[in-house]
Write a protein that binds this DNA or RNA. Structure first.
Length: 151
DNA sequence: CGGCTGATTGTTGCA
DNA sequence: TGCAACAATCAGCCG
């Protein structure tokens, strides 16, 4: 059972010890592996919610692009955003983290359904209707007024 | 012409 | 408990 990640493991093992970031090449390996194992794709595997960093980065991208219309490459924003992110205080990250928390909550729900499906799948194929989309609008509406969808 | 890599950090999930 | 892989983005670059 050589998990595809086994290869990455070796790669990471070599560089990880250096304490530095994983070799950029790790992405290459991962990508390859994914393609290999992507044979079996889950019906609706819940994608991981963007981390607070990603949320921040999301907005940062736009700003960065405006500030640097020339440099709008991934790495550019990534580095710039990462640097800024570290400069941010917990308070600044608070709003982003809060968002990430919400995403996580939703992700958990998706996971629950995902697990359910898997469970049913092992025993019986649960005909997945479209009812799995039960948007539960419970408590949100904090105070920061987010998601203004009006246009 | 087409597809993938690259970089940031965080986060979650499984063994 | 810890590692491992992945989440978006977007343009550049190689085959």
């Amino acid at each position: 059972m050589k998990g595809p990640k086994a290869k990455v493991e070796q790669k990471l093992a070599g560089d990880k010890k250096t304490g530095k970031r994983k070799p950029a090449t790790d992405t290459q390996v991962k990508r390859q592996i994914k393609k290999e194992k992507k044979a079996k794709k889950d019906p609706n595997k819940p994608k991981r919610p963007p981390s607070a960093f990603f949320v921040f980065l999301d907005e940062f991208r736009k700003e960065y692009k405006q500030a640097n219309p020339n440099a709008n490459s991934v790495s550019a924003v990534g580095k710039a955003g990462g640097e800024k992110w570290r400069a941010l205080s917990d308070a600044e990250k608070a709003p982003y983290v809060a968002k990430a928390e919400k995403k996580k909550a939703e992700y958990e729900k998706s996971m629950a359904t995902y697990n359910k499906q898997k469970d049913s799948n092992t025993e019986e194929v649960a005909e997945e209707s479209d009812k799995s989309k039960s948007e539960v609008n419970d408590e949100e509406e904090d105070e920061s007024g987010e998601e203004d969808d009006e246009e």
